[in-house]
Amino acid sequence: MSQFLAAVVQASPIAGDTQASVEKAAKLIAECGRKGVDVAVFPEAFIGGYPKGANFEIAVGMRTAAGREEFRWYFEQAIAVPGPETEILAQAARDAGTFVTMGVIERDGGTLYCTALFFGKDGGLMGKHRKLMPTAAERLCWGFGDGSTLTAVPTPWGNMGAVICWENYMPLLRTAMYDKHVAIYCAPTADDRDTWVPTMQHVALEGRCFVLSACQYLKRGDVSDALKNHITDAPGDVLMRGGSVIVDPYGKIVAGPDFSGETILVAELDTADLARSKFDFDVVGHYARPDVFRLTVEDRPMLAVQSASASSQ
């Protein structure tokens, strides 16, 4: 099975309504299925919301009651994994016969994580990746992932993994993912700058993999007023302009970037290009120099509390 149809879904969630956002995601997955898409990638934080423009009223050494209430509201938008929302997404993937990578805000205990979920075309929740390094002010509301979710899941066209937004600027993280022989490198993002597309081209060329990057097309009206916005209050103003893109293992753009609005970008990809491209460059194979450079990855879960009985097993 050499060729497959890939899609990046550029859309926004429903403002302040996680259930409605899940239902919208399910409809978009169904649309991908009708197009014959084999692999579909959604943006970062599509379920639960990317709080662009919020600051939760934090300054060094200061929190406010209003900021705490904003976080409580945002906390309630997040989902448990697994949970009722993932069941709906899994059913949508099954009905469409499509592998899906979905950006969500995951709630675990008292902490939120920016997470990418992987669903199989049979509807199974195949795994997840938690963002290792929230960027800048994202650290005000999201926790840190660990090496246990540097996940790659199998598909008929090779392994699929996800690296979220500015994690893609972490060379060692990229190398760890390349070592998992990722053929379908998903890059859910909130970065809509002109510099993002060449970054994706570099990743594809470096990893000799297909890169599928999905970004939201988000207007101020798509963000709930429950979070004070420090960018704009005009509903029609664009907070995130998209720029979703699909790149082949030679760094060539095969779909996008699109900045026009909500859309689904589709491209037919050929896995034979993976071997062809690695003829002259395999960053963790024949082009590596382990006698000079080696990477050690701590891939055990980093638990704050572990019982003695569990650790002795």
Rank of each mutant, 00 (worst) to 15 (best):
P171T: 14
T199N: 04
P51H: 09
M200C: 12
G61R: 01
A214R: 12
A90L: 11
A255E: 07
L89W: 13
A267C: 05
A26G: 14
W166Y: 15
R68D: 12
G127S: 06
L28W: 05
F144G: 03
T64K: 00
Y217T: 11
E206I: 01
M177Q: 07
A66T: 12
L274R: 10
F99D: 11
Y169D: 11
P257E: 12
L140T: 05
G236Q: 14
I79F: 03
M200F: 05
D291H: 14
P82A: 07
R241P: 00
F4I: 13
L140I: 09
E167W: 00
T64G: 01
W73R: 02
L295M: 12
V297R: 04
G161H: 13
V100A: 08
S260F: 06
E85N: 14
T232N: 13
R107P: 06
A25Q: 14
E262T: 12
P301K: 04
F75G: 05
K131P: 04
K252S: 11
A162N: 02
T263I: 05
Y169A: 06
V284M: 09
E44K: 15
R72E: 13
V203R: 00
Y178F: 14
G103H: 05
G61F: 00
A275H: 05
A54N: 15
A304F: 00
E167N: 14
A96P: 05
V60F: 14
A308V: 03
V238S: 02
G110N: 15
V266L: 04
F144M: 10
M62S: 04
P82E: 09
M1H: 15
L140Q: 13
D222W: 04
V60N: 08
V254D: 08
G251D: 10
P156I: 10
K131H: 08
E138N: 15
R63V: 11
R72G: 01
M200A: 02
V254K: 06
A183P: 02
Y250M: 06
C141V: 15
L239H: 12
I88C: 10
V283W: 07
V297W: 00
